[in-house]
Design a protein around this nucleic acid. Structure first.
Lengths: 236, 236
DNA sequence: CGTGGGATTGAGGCTGCTCAAATTTGGTGG
DNA sequence: CCACCAAATTTGAGCAGCCTCAATCCCACG
């Protein structure tokens, strides 16, 4: 059930870490980075595994290195809202009470850099530049969260899907990848739970976009044949 | 249009500030507090005034001292999503690009403690305890934001209204006030835009709760006659 | 080549929206 | 104190968008 592979402490790996530039650690100098590296260990998860759960008292911070995760909350009756998708470089922290307030699953294979709570807390405690960096990331997340509230509360199904495609492409692009087609590692149900829709509505909406040739649905992704049209549909 | 009254720097007022214990400044000692007080000035806004706008490049941080504000985003066609209500002690910051990513209006009379960006930034720069405090507040906001996403994306109108009443009461209670009835300073449209509903649906839902005596609608507020029933409806 | 899970398509229904009117509330001035 | 007006709220009727339930399709995989 949990074939988790833990690799040795990765202090020697930090310097050429794939997310070095974008992650929390971007604010560290070489010496600090070495010390910091001792605190984290790389852990792998395979597709569908749960990295942590909402209700757990967790003892770790996570830095996503490779792969995609869905971050979600469940209602008692099973309804699910995906509050975000995590990409490499994203930092997942717990709140004051020592819990994440959401759960996280791997979508496809995932590698994280895991930090134990106490040593991590001690390390950042007196490093204002790191604290500022963490702050910066939190602010950005807050901003995204508020944008998503607008989407969930005030946009139609068509607008939601169009905005999702554009936003997801945007994130992948800023992750340096040149894209001809947009990969969609998450399944339709994930997209539906992210947009506050049902799987059928998502499917229908995509089909509706494909019919006039605005997008093309490919296995594992889509491509924007008419990006301008999609942007118009997203209605800013 | 902007009869804003600015009071002199309030360093002598900080020590007995109403939000001293809950706001950012709770992490400061006496000496720091005096210095900090020099940076802020108290500003008053009257009902309905806009404190800052989404698109403005703003130059200030705000600490809400008295009153209630609605924080919202607008779509180009005028649809509005209220992303939160600010209460005394809440801290409103801009993001890296120097903008708030939402607008803020006063609901009733409001007093804020306003800080200019640069001196504020310099003050917190090397104060890890303050940075940690700010972080803490950001994390809490993020947590609330995610809860609200669940509400917006996955709850029915009845559940939304019930959850709103409980959540609002909770916040007021934790602000020390004993409550017989729950004051609702915001109007129905505000509630609707907060919950992702129309004003008619909010009104109908409240009526539906009042008819069997679950709540009572009073001038400027409501009272929970049967809190257990409301909690059941919220389906937490 | 068969199997099964994900995705798509279809038909019909319900929740919440739209448009419109009635009612209540709050403010203002006589 | 009361009449009157504007604004907010409530109520009603009808409709539409999205959901529900169900069947079918499409691949990937054994």
């Amino acid at each position: 059930m949990k074939p988790v592979v833990t690799i040795e402490p990765n202090w020697q790996l930090c310097s050429d870490c794939a997310v070095r530039a974008s992650a929390v650690c971007s604010s560290l100098d070489a010496a600090e980075l070495r010390e910091f590296g001792h605190l984290g260990r790389r852990v792998h998860f395979s597709s569908g595994q749960t990295v942590f759960s909402e209700e757990d008292i967790t003892t770790s911070f996570y830095n996503l290195l490779e792969g995609v995760m869905r971050l979600y909350k469940l209602l008692p009756d099973g309804r699910r809202q995906i509050v975000g998708f995590a990409l490499p470089g994203d930092f997942l922290r717990m709140n004051i009470s020592g819990r994440h307030n959401f759960s996280a699953d791997a979508i496809g294979a995932v590698t994280v850099c895991q930090f134990a709570k106490s040593p991590f807390g001690r390390f950042i405690e007196d490093r204002p530049h790191l604290l500022r960096r963490i702050n910066e990331l939190a602010i950005r997340e807050l901003s995204q969260a508020r944008d998503h509230m607008v989407l969930l509360g005030r946009r139609s199904a068509d607008e939601k899907v169009a905005a999702f495609l554009l936003g997801w492409r945007e994130r992948l692009v800023s992750l340096k990848r040149a894209l001809d087609t947009i990969p969609l590692p998450m399944n339709r149900q994930d997209i539906a739970d992210y947009l506050g829709l049902t799987i059928e509505t998502v499917s229908r909406t995509l089909t509706k976009l494909e019919r006039p040739g605005v997008i093309e649905i490919i296995h594992g992704g889509i491509s924007l044949l008419d990006p301008a049209k999609v942007e118009a549909l997203a209605a800013a």
